[in-house]
C-alpha cells in the first residue's frame, strides 16, 4: 500500500503558492472542501485562478477567498448568490470565465484521462464558441474544448482510506471525482478516514492512484443553501 495520508490541512496544502491554478470540487455549497478553503484563507495565497462550478456565498465556501481578494480569476458555470463576487466582477477586479457546466466537467475529465481536447455540441452557435475550432460530425456541429491544466485539485469525499481511495455521498459527489487526478497534485479531504480494508474495493468511487494527499477534515459545517421542506409528518 502506498500511503497518501497526511496529518493536517497545513501539510495537505503545502506547496500552494500565489498565482496558481486550483480546481475545487462542489456544487453550490454541497460537497465543497470546507477545511481546505478555510485554510487557504489563513495561508493568504493570492492571485489564484479557481476552477469551480460555483463561487460560494458571501460568508462560506469560495466566498471567503473572495472577501480576502485572494482570487484573480474564476472559471465557473454559474456564479449567482454572492454579492461580493458581483461587486468584484462588475468593478473589473475579478476576471470571470463562464463555461457550460458539462464542458466544465469534461475539461476536468479530459485532464484526468489524458485527452488534450474534445468536441462537444454545447455552446455551438453561441459566444462560448467564439474563437474556437468547430467541426461537423454526422451533420451536427461541435466545438473544440481543451483539457484544464491546473496545479492542484482539492476535493471533498465522504470516506477515504490511507491508500487515497474515496467514496462520496449523495449529490456531494458532483465535480469531486472528475477533478481527482486532473491536476498535478490532488488533495482529498474526507469526513471520515477509515482503516485500510474498511472500504469495499467494489464500492470505491475513486481509486487512490488519482490522489496524492488525503486527510480527515477537522470539522464540517455542511451549510444548506436553500432549505426546502414539506410540513413535518404528524403523528398518527
Amino acid at each position: 500500500m502506498i500511503s497518501k495520508k497526511v496529518n493536517s490541512v497545513q501539510e495537505a496544502l503545502s506547496g500552494i503558492t500565489d498565482d496558481m491554478i486550483i480546481m475545487l470540487g462542489g456544487f453550490g455549497l454541497c460537497g465543497i472542501p470546507e477545511n481546505s478553503i478555510n485554510h487557504l484563507v489563513k495561508m493568504g495565497v493570492k492571485n489564484l485562478t479557481c476552477i469551480s462550478n460555483n463561487a460560494g456565498v458571501d460568508d462560506f465556501g469560495l466566498g471567503l477567498l473572495l472577501q480576502k481578494k485572494q482570487i484573480k480569476k474564476m472559471i465557473s458555470s454559474y456564479v449567482g448568490e454572492n454579492e461580493e463576487f458581483e461587486r468584484q466582477m462588475l468593478s473589473g477586479e475579478l476576471e470571470v470565465e463562464l463555461i457550460p457546466q458539462g464542458t466544465l466537467a469534461e475539461r476536468c475529465k479530459a485532464a484526468q484521462g489524458g485527452f488534450p481536447a474534445f468536441f462537444t455540441p454545447a455552446g455551438y452557435g453561441t459566444e462560448v464558441a467564439d474563437g474556437k475550432e468547430t467541426r461537423e460530425f454526422n451533420g451536427k456541429m461541435y466545438v473544440l474544448e481543451t483539457a484544464f491544466d491546473a496545479d492542484f485539485a482539492i476535493v471533498k469525499a465522504w470516506k477515504g482510506d490511507e491508500a487515497g481511495n474515496l467514496i462520496f455521498r449523495g449529490t456531494a459527489r458532483n465535480f469531486n471525482p472528475c477533478m481527482c487526478g486532473a491536476a498535478k497534485i490532488t488533495i482529498a479531504e474526507v469526513e471520515e478516514m477509515v482503516p485500510l480494508g474498511g472500504l469495499d474495493p467494489d464500492c470505491i468511487h475513486i481509486p487512490g492512484i488519482f490522489v496524492q494527499r488525503i486527510f480527515q477534515g477537522e470539522r464540517y459545517e455542511k451549510r444548506i443553501e436553500q432549505r426546502t421542506v414539506r410540513p413535518a409528518k404528524t403523528a398518527l
Binding site: S76, S77, Y78, G80, L90, P100, Q101, G102, T126
Partner: peptide, 10 residues
C-alpha cells in the same frame, strides 16, 4: 450581472 449558463447550453 451575468450569473452564468449553468447546464443550459449542454
Amino acid at each position: 450581472m451575468v450569473k452564468g449558463m449553468g447546464g443550459a447550453m449542454d
